[in-house]
Design a protein around this nucleic acid. Sequence first.
DNA 1: TTGTTTTGTAGTTTCGAATAACAATTATGG
DNA 2: CCATAATTGTTATTCGAAACTACAAAACAA
Lengths: 167, 167
Amino acid sequence: MSSNVDKTTAAGAMAAATAKDARSPAIEIGPLAGMIGYVLRRAQLAVFDDVIANFSELDLRPAEYSVLVLLGHAPGAKQSDVAAALGIQRANFVVLFDRLERRGLARRSSAPNDRRSYALYLTDEGEKVLARATSLESQHERVLDEKLGPGGRERLLELLGKLAERG
Amino acid sequence: MSSNVDKTTAAGAMAAATAKDARSPAIEIGPLAGMIGYVLRRAQLAVFDDVIANFSELDLRPAEYSVLVLLGHAPGAKQSDVAAALGIQRANFVVLFDRLERRGLARRSSAPNDRRSYALYLTDEGEKVLARATSLESQHERVLDEKLGPGGRERLLELLGKLAERG
DNA sequence: TTGTTTTGTAGTTTCGAATAACAATTATGG
DNA sequence: CCATAATTGTTATTCGAAACTACAAAACAA
């Protein structure tokens, strides 16, 4: 039942502007449209919504996907390193990884040199899910490329990289 | 305590790459560096962290600031409209606005034509806080401009705008 | 008038993230 | 060698932002 009425999620912000329906419909975001932080946030939410929708068949959240990608890229890494690479606290990574382990997508293998830490690996099932997810992701990236136009991706990644530099 | 050791928040991701310290330090984010969604998220978190730090003297969150801006831009708007413009659910806007009202920064004035709705306004104190916050924001935007380089802001806002378009 | 829509609310839940505290293990300095 | 410090994984708690359901009051439409 909440079809086109309650689509508040970011849909409201781009109404108005052109046709003034005379009867006080939506208002404009005004000065916010020029603020990097605000526009950045709205874009990020929009993209993540798409990612989540694309991954729905896998029941995989963006954060979980990023862990699978990293494990595929650096198998045997320990929790601290993966967490640090993703900018996640060690404590929060535990819960995140627990879920992947419970689903049988990844496993903790006791590290040989250090009895404190684990070496993390994808399971066979995890490899499969990662492959499927990556395929879906690639499709999505292509859709984004269409939106961004020629050269858009490169320019955007470069600019975002500059913003992400801390300091 | 927890000074430069636990700066996991996004700091970890850009280590390595150049100097291989031989002893398994941080790992790279690998394929994630080419995914719009991931880079977008990291950049957004970095920028928001700065905004929050800049607003610390005002104890003002980004979402609250956006409400003040909109009220300064469209005084007398009703809750539904402001919420829709910001892409926030009506229900969640209530809590958000409650806090601003309790702090004496904004007020609900009974709308003349509709006994269901309120006309929202900034208080004098709210105007002051908005002015100060906007000043701080402008400074921050200038810092971002330095990071982005000449023409960077315009290019970035355009690209982000394309991503934020739903559909 | 009767039924529908709009508006503001309350309550609950989820997700990502921060933080503090802790046990086991490893590393280090005297 | 041993006392002390640092690392690693963990639990538990808290928070902000957001989604969702369900409601009552008021306005609107047929």
